[in-house]
């Protein structure tokens, strides 16, 4: 499977899913994101890379308005998903987040059973008409997150009892169970060991068939492995955005080059 990665990387003709224009983010007095504009395509994995504190996670959290939950955070500019302004007054963030799922840095299963963790989203969004439909949804999500075989016998055991890699895949299953159109991943592998990381990376590549995936990562190797497009952030600016291959082989901006060659980190 790994061999296929490269070949797929040059598929570039996808529709634009998320369009951001002149996005500014302030945390109180701090100007965290400075005038970022970017087009993120459907059925593509887009990686955000950059040194710590460069604003890549902050920008990610703008896309499903998770920043709304922080009192001092203020977002300006324009982010459109399918050409609808998600910061429009009429948009309910709850509805938006059903459409734009998110996986977090640290696995955060709820202190409930594995089944209830996955069923949580479909339940609150009313995606099933009855129990057997819900069962189907849960099974499908767990299969898609490549964890079904490991947990099929203990669906009613607590989700917190799984290993770190399993927990993270459970969280991915939980996110895909609501059938989102965009999946945001905030350093999903940073708390995982190499084997679990490889599993999750393969999973991300599979998910690309159905979703637009945006992944924030610290690891350039990971970005190179899983993404087709890469955006490099530095001090709140979007420095360079383009084909992953091109960013890693022939960056245009000297700052990108310094980062990739390990001079700023």
């Amino acid at each position: 499977m790994r061999d296929n990665f490269r070949a797929e990387n040059d598929v570039t003709t996808n529709a634009v899913k998320i369009a951001a224009r002149n996005v500014q983010v302030y945390y109180g007095e701090t100007h965290a994101i400075k005038d970022v504009s970017v087009d993120i395509e459907d059925k593509t994995v887009t990686a955000f890379i950059g040194p710590s504190g460069c604003g890549k996670s902050t920008f990610l959290r703008c896309i499903n308005r998770m920043n709304d939950t922080i009192d001092i955070c203020r977002v300006e500019g324009d982010i459109r998903i399918d050409d609808e302004d998600i910061y429009d007054r009429r948009v309910d963030p709850v509805q938006l987040r059903a459409k734009v799922g998110m996986v977090f840095q640290k696995p955060n299963p709820f202190p409930k059973s594995i089944y209830d963790n996955v069923a949580y989203g479909p339940r609150i969004h009313g995606l099933s008409r009855n129990k057997s439909e819900l069962d189907d949804i849960v099974e499908r999500a767990l299969k898609r997150a490549a964890i079904w075989n490991e947990v099929r016998d203990r669906l009613h055991a607590p989700g917190t009892g799984l290993s770190g890699g399993q927990q993270q895949r459970l969280c991915i299953a939980r996110a895909v169970a609501t059938e989102p159109e965009v999946l945001l991943m905030d350093e999903p592998c940073s708390a995982l060991d190499p084997i679990a990381t490889a599993q999750v990376e393969e999973l991300i590549d599979e998910l690309r068939q159905n979703y637009s995936v945006v992944i924030v990562t610290h690891s350039m190797q990971q970005a190179a492995r899983v993404s087709q497009k890469t955006a490099f952030f530095h001090l709140g600016n979007l420095v360079e955005f383009g084909e992953t291959d091109k960013i890693f082989t022939a960056p245009e901006d000297p700052r990108t080059e310094s980062y990739i060659t390990g001079r700023i980190g």
Binding site: T69, L96, P111, I124
Partner: peptide, 24 residues
């Protein structure tokens, strides 16, 4: 992280409270 996980799935605040935080 529990709250984030729930909000990230599109739960409202009261759903998060009733179904995630209070049970926890």
């Amino acid at each position: 992280a529990m709250r984030d996980g729930s909000f990230g799935l599109g739960a409202t605040q009261s759903e998060t409270l009733r179904q995630v935080i209070l049970p926890a």
